[in-house]
Write a protein that binds this DNA or RNA. Structure first.
Length: 642
RNA sequence: GCCGGCGUAACUCAGUUGGUAGAGUAGCUGAUUUGUAAUCAGCCAGUCAGCGGUUCGAGUCCGCUCGCCGGCUCCA
């Protein structure tokens, strides 16, 4: 028996007998670690705790602290749930049951969808299995044997999975009375799960394909400590308070109406003030950075959309056509054909390029009923759209410049944490594959030059070109695409765009389609959730509420409001005959950033008593000082303080 | 579009086994004149999402439609 040299995460190297397992290494480190150990990472590969370590290697014991440890924990939980379902619903067929960001799901083919009562029964059965403290055991099998094995069990989905797998050997995991085809690894014993909860059910298509069977999915979460489940439930409640649909109603920012139609946003005055602020900032920044602003109509001759390719590649997302004097018109789902038509209205020289044309263009897209979601997914949306017309050689330079501008805009709203994706050629696309690959490589280079970490979204590109997307997460961790920067070599071709190069020849420009906020509606939704309604001062719909203590102070209070308004501060007066406590409470609930409380003392000294939202009393200040404070905070967008 | 859940006053919600609606908040009226998160009283308030069915009788049961919610799929 030889010796193994095991390197631990702290850098120390320890010798172990050959055949040592992760469990034994954990025990050698500490009893605490042995107790919490879920799996082991050997030279980057996650393995079962009871598997022999194959050779000298860096070894890390995984607990619930590590993301990989949690994934193993949740994956094992999904097996336990699958066992419970199979025992309670004998005819059920197993599909897949992976861990997800928080928890897991398992898809089943069953006669009837699961009811809430079914979930309770499944939970009880799961608890029994956990109480057995059953051991997880791995076995390998020849792939073709496994196919025969599962075919006998009529486990169609497992057979299909096996047929698609590479390699001759597959692994099965056993615990209690349950077995499942599974790569693993798994936690040592079911008893390690101290708290769990089945959170929801839903229909889910097999392999995400709506042409295939709809399976029934159950989602769940589990933890090694009861307190962690309590914490999860509390986090969900907190997230609910940040939900833009709830805050939107409470703060009277926007609404929907059945009489208007689903997915069509009605911006209430307070929301409209914020939108106006967002748009003003957006316009100023664009004008300062070499953009021109343009406007285009809401409908256009159908032939325009035929030429652009929208009728063949985007029909499913478009509203029906409108008949006008026997000619067909189309409500616009995008702004690009209009900007292209403007480009074609005259001749351009290479000296004119790049052109950067921006428009807050409201477009309409037919979204299927089931996908609408508050402000995040609507049918009428205003894109902060722009199109750059660029000479081909300058494309990368322009994209690099644009990516930096994009990050600058997002940061101005306080966003610093976002996920970036490179989206490549979809199945349905126009243009030459070689052009696509070159454009994708160009985008990749730009991302690396700017130094943004990114993931690749295979097949996620627009039909006319690859793109860089930036997504921001909502309160529940669902991520929404906001910024998008799209490379386009196709539409210039389709519309036969050209400019006159320095040699006097006609040359084809490339285009960039981009939206930085994405859609004002969605961006606003993300903004509400990000700030939980506690907006930075420059955006807040009401910036200051002036609260007179008695009616006799109303005149002075009105003067204060007027003075603030003269300085473009959005100020309101609360002159109801309520106690200050009530006025403060109402202002706090509306999340108004500042309250100026005025009574006899303030009239006397010509001051205001400043109270900051959720911070409290800041003491008395002269009106001029208070104004200075506000103006500085507005100017800095509150970013310096963060 | 698909699977499941839900839909009661402007808002948040009660409404037992079917016997024809109730609270708090908001609003209105009046009183109160208040010093850092709720002053008091009175009043108004609902085609119980819509349509159809079962029943002597439906907010409660059944069907369809619409909308919303959680997912699937799709995208800004």
């Amino acid at each position: 028996m030889g010796q193994l040299q095991i390197t631990l995460p702290d850098g120390s190297v320890k010798g172990f007998e050959a055949g040592v397992t992760g469990a034994e290494i954990a025990a050698a480190v500490s009893a605490g670690l042995a107790r919490e150990a879920l799996a082991v990472k050997v030279d980057g590969a996650v393995m079962d705790l009871n598997a022999p370590i194959p050779g000298d290697a860096p070894v890390e014991i995984l607990t619930f602290e590590q993301p990989e440890g949690r994934q193993v924990f949740w994956h094992s939980s999904s097996h336990i749930m699958a066992q419970a379902v199979m025992e309670l619903f004998p005819g059920a067929k197993l599909a897949i049951g992976p861990p997800i960001d928080e928890g897991w799901y398992y898809d089943f083919e069953v006669e009837k969808p699961f009811s809430p009562e079914d979930l309770e029964k499944i939970e009880l059965k799961m608890q029994e299995i956990i109480d057995e403290d059953a051991v997880f055991r791995r076995e390998t099998m020849n792939r073709s044997d496994a196919i025969t094995h599962y075919r006998e069990q009529k486990a169609d989905y497992k057979v299909e999975l096996l047929e698609d797998l590479e390699g001759d050997e597959v692994s099965l995991y056993y615990h209690s009375r349950f077995e499942d085809l599974c790569r693993g690894p798994h936690i040592p014993r079911t008893g390690l799960i101290k708290a769990f909860k089945l959170t929801s059910t839903s229909g889910a298509y097999w392999r995400g394909d709506e042409k295939r069977t709809m399976l029934q999915r159950i989602y769940g979460v589990s933890y090694p400590k009861k307190a962690m489940l309590d914490d999860y439930v509390k986090r969900l409640e907190e997230a609910r308070k940040r939900d833009h649909r709830i805050l939107g109603k409470q703060l009277e920012l926007y609404t929907f109406s059945d009489s208007v139609g689903p997915g069509l946003v009605l911006w209430m005055p307070r929301g409209a003030r914020m939108r106006n602020e967002i748009e003003n900032f957006w316009r100023e920044e664009h004008l300062r950075h070499g953009y021109e602003l343009v406007y285009s109509p809401h409908i256009a001759n159908l032939e325009l959309w035929e030429q652009s390719g929208h009728t063949s590649f985007f029909t499913e997302d478009m509203f029906g056509t409108i008949d006008v004097e026997g000619r067909q018109y189309q409500l616009k789902p995008m702004n690009c054909p209009f900007h292209i038509a403007m480009y074609k209205s005259r001749l351009w020289s290479y000296r004119d390029l790049p052109l950067r044309w921006a428009e807050l263009g409201t477009v309409y897209r037919y979204e299927r009923g089931g996908v609408l979601h508050g402000l995040m997914r609507v049918r009428g949306l205003t894109q902060d759209d722009a199109h750059h017309f660029v000479v081909q050689e300058k494309m990368e330079e322009e994209l690099g410049w644009l990516l930096n501008f994009c990050v600058h805009i997002l940061r101005s709203f306080g966003f610093s944490d976002f996920d970036t994706y490179l989206s490549t050629r979809p199945d349905k696309a126009i243009g030459d594959v070689g052009d696509w690959r070159r454009a994708e490589a160009g985008l990749r280079q730009v991302l690396e030059k700017v130094g943004l970490a990114y993931d690749v979204d295979e097949g996620g590109g627009a039909f006319y070109g690859p793109k860089i997307d930036i997504k921001i997460k909502d309160a529940l961790g669902r991520s929404w695409q906001c910024s998008t920067i799209q490379f386009d070599f196709s539409l210039p071709e389709r519309f036969d765009l050209y400019y006159i190069a320095s040699d006097g020849q006609q040359k084809r420009p490339f285009m960039i389609h981009r939206a930085l906020l994405g859609a004002i509606e969605r961006f606003f939704g993300v903004l509400i959730e990000y700030y939980a309604g506690n907006f930075p001062l420059w955006l807040a719909p009401v910036q200051v509420k002036v609260l007179p203590i008695t009616d006799s102070i109303n005149d002075y209070a009105r003067q204060v409001v007027d003075r603030l308004k003269e300085h473009n501060i959005r100020a309101e007066l609360d002159f109801r005959s309520e106690k200050v406590g009530a006025k403060i409470r109402d202002a706090e609930l509306l999340k108004v950033p500042y309250m100026f409380i005025v009574g006899a003392r303030e009239v006397e000294a010509e001051t205001v008593s400043v109270r900051k939202h959720s911070a409290g009393d800041l003491g008395s200040k002269t009106i001029a000082d208070a104004l200075g404070l506000l103006e500085e905070e507005i100017r800095s967008k509150g970013l310096a303080a963060k």
